[in-house]
Design a protein around this nucleic acid. Structure first.
Lengths: 215, 215, 215, 215
DNA sequence: CATGAATGAGAATTCATTCAT
DNA sequence: CATGAATGAATTCTCATTCAT
């Protein structure tokens, strides 16, 4: 009845279900975006809808858990790259990894790009991501590879921008984003030497209230 | 006459209501995106729900009317710039005008970025927009201002990308997008001379069916 | 403005509109049944919806007017047949004319078969129809052509029954009702030995598309 | 097991609700016809509107489930009668059972009489019904009880015709259909000389109130 | 008088969330 | 603990009817 063959260790069942759920939700959110229904997720996980709410108090929480996992992965990737030999290549690899995540995951794009309505933990993870990006950018900057007024936050923001630019092409050409990554890297790295016309953002301004006016 | 879809009654109250409706809908779509409800739009316009459907046979039509208006405006702007003296400045002004529209309007971003399932007229307008952008790009290209492998479609795609890049900043810093426009212009215009790693898109691939898998 | 070429004799306009309206409504009700919308009728008549309500205080009244017209026509037909030479043939001709009306008019079937919710005038017309039918039946009865316990009301009721019996066949075989008219006249079990005038259907023709034109 | 469409949860409360729902829907459809609203059905069943859609994916499905149940019952009745001793009596009993169903159920009349656009299963059931009717008719035909050119499909069509003939009488005289069943069996003009089993109606009983219960 | 614009109740359907089993 | 049944608010859209122009 509980899904295990032996005498229902409810504890391990729960752990297993949580895993199943996270995987299914990740897949569903990636494919369908944040609007995917809890029913769809539960079905993909092979559990009941109630189980979703046992593990995550709301859809919002579930989404946050998934997003956190991806953000942390990217933070880890960036952290590892902080000690790479070639700072320019490291930055490029970080951005490549970043865009790849955006490109694979509709919900990720929607969540990172809509910074209000967000979970505290997700914000913190985005902050950490900006920190790591800043670390990588600073190294490249010191080597003159990157324009002096480009920040880590710029880099994080740009990841989503690249995905979004290529989005209409991605069904037909799943790698099209590489074109725009390269394009912006040219702008980011060398540039014309002119100061950019607008000062860099210090940090992503994550505003609590009014998540979706008019709804 | 003004780009509206239906016949256009000449009765003054109806004309006024239609204007009210278009304005309210434009505002609502701009603020809330395409998911805003007809009820919300009707309320903002100060009319009954039925009145919305009297003027536009479906939510889709209303959205299309608004989007068409904005697309056509931008096409007109671009067309006027085709005969400007300075091709480089013309392209920059076109892109500035373009991003300004994206930045002001959530629905516009959603519609242009998710081009499937769309109204034929909207598609046509997007095509015309790409054509105009190509005209502007070609002129700049011939003068060596723009990389040889940048197309009008690239330019149109990039408009949305810039908006999306700056989106999280826009509440606090409504002009932040200028930073990223400049950044990408550096990439677009001079670049490093390297070929981009991915061939340019010929045209926005507008795919009819199943725009939202998993729903 | 008013539709006339000369100085708007509003009076004759109104008369003309009423005629237009009755014709359009008759056609629309016949094709689509009582559920056809006032908008559809107004459009077919080439007038505004308001005009419908100026001439008929409600949809119900308009429907009643049309139904009355048809009922009266049938009453007249029956009345004329009361003096025909052959009472048996007269009854048969009356029933033929009756079924032809039912067969041509969806709304007529719906209204006559659903006797509640009805207009006093329509009821009166139905009563008169029964009287005429009784006259015809009585003559035939006296000649021994018709069973002694068949009444005019029976005959009227049977008209609708015949239409309804043949209804599923009528799209493919518009004359199929003749089969069932003959059947009920001749009798199923005993019969006269004559072949029925219409071949038997092999199977109910179940047609997929558009079951309800004009909706 | 019993002819329901979906999987059939084993939870007792759900089973009970499904039963409640089917009963309420059957009653509502019977009384009001297919136009009865889901809200009305839900209310009669004492459940929320959502519950209806949990059990049946659309109104169409719910209707089909009910109709199928009735069709199958009638098919079963007919099948059992195929082995009855007296073929003439068997046919009469089949037709009696058939008309009884029509008479009890407005939706049934509407569905069988407007057979386009229908659920595949419902069509199949109607086909099976015609087959059974043909079996019964053939037996009677071989014994010379029935005219040689009457088919099973005729018989099925006639069931609805009888109901429709008697419909205006049924509120006042619920058994009036027996008259018309006998009539069509014996024949109008020739007949067997037996009195019809139900006295003739004096006049169409046109009842004012309650035009369309359940609307 | 004629018009057709506005209205708003009502229909089917979806879905996050709660809770009895 | 897990389940999935029940709920009801919200959404898009239709239409008879009223009324300002």
């Amino acid at each position: 009845m509980t899904g295990t063959t032996s005498v229902g260790s409810s504890r391990s069942d729960a752990v297993r279900n949580r895993r199943l759920l996270l995987d299914a939700a990740a897949e569903a959110f990636a494919e369908c975006g944040v609007e995917v229904s809890i029913g769809e997720i539960a079905q993909r996980a092979g559990v009941g809808k109630g189980t979703v709410f046992r593990h995550f108090s709301s859809k919002e929480e579930l989404l946050a858990a998934i997003m956190l996992g991806m953000l942390n992965e990217l933070v880890d990737t960036g952290t590892a790259l902080l000690t790479a030999d070639d700072p320019g290549l490291a930055l490029r690899e970080f951005m490549t990894a970043g865009v790849e995540i955006f490109v694979r995951d509709r919900a990720f794009c929607e969540v990172i790009g809509r910074p209000s309505l967000q979970h505290a933990q997700v914000r913190d993870a985005i902050d950490r991501l900006c920190d790591v990006a800043e670390g990588l950018t600073a190294r490249a900057r010191r080597q003159g590879i990157v324009r002096p007024d480009i920040t880590g936050t710029d880099v994080v923001l740009i990841l989503g921008g690249i995905q979004h630019t290529a989005a209409p092409l991605l069904i037909a050409e799943p790698q099209a984003w590489r074109r725009y990554l390269e394009l912006i890297l040219d702008g980011v790295t060398t540039g014309t030497g002119r100061r950019l016309p607008y000062p860099p953002p210090s940090r992503l301004p994550l505003i609590d209230p009014d998540p979706d006016p008019g709804r």
